[in-house]
């Protein structure tokens, strides 16, 4: 490729999802991350029990992300052809796992309101 730039990647993602959906998803991801950080600041700590419970969602998120990509594309596990494919699979799974874990931590925390210290 001639130029590999951040601007080009943003342009490509806007084409994949449409500008509205893409920036909406970016905003949603940023909001969830900010809420997560806010909860840590608010509670002065990471609520270990709640986080442990949230982590139970990680495998679900990982599998869902991988299956989503395979469903969205005409491909499956048998198409893994080299080390980079395994790495990509792990990255997709990790993204799903981390995303759902954070979401599973944030939503009940916000719903239940401020916890007593």
């Amino acid at each position: 490729m001639k130029d590999v730039s951040i601007g080009m990647f943003i342009a490509v993602f806007e084409e994949i999802f449409g500008a509205g959906l893409f920036w909406g998803m970016v905003a949603a991801a940023a909001a969830i991350l900010l809420a997560f950080l806010y909860l840590i600041v608010r509670d002065h700590k990471l609520e270990s029990r709640r986080f442990l419970r949230a982590e139970l969602w990680a495998p679900v998120g990982a599998l869902a992300a991988i299956l989503f990509v395979q469903f969205w594309t005409n491909s499956g596990f048998t198409d893994i052809g080299g080390p980079i494919d395994v790495i990509v699979l792990i990255l997709i799974g990790s993204a799903g796992a981390i995303g759902l874990t954070i979401l599973a931590y944030v939503v009940p925390s916000l719903l239940s309101g401020r916890r007593s210290a």
Binding site: G7, M8, A11, V12, F13, E14, E15, I16, V69, W72, T73, N74, S75, D79, I80, G81, G82, I84, D85, V88
Partner: peptide
């Protein structure tokens, strides 16, 4: 020169959006 899944993903997911961005002069 390796038959890879990631290269297929690029063809199927990223190529058309990259092409469209190119049409608009953004890629």
């Amino acid at each position: 020169l390796e038959e890879l899944w990631i290269s297929w993903l690029m063809k199927e997911i990223a190529l058309k959006p990259t092409y469209n961005a190119m049409l608009r002069g953004r890629a």
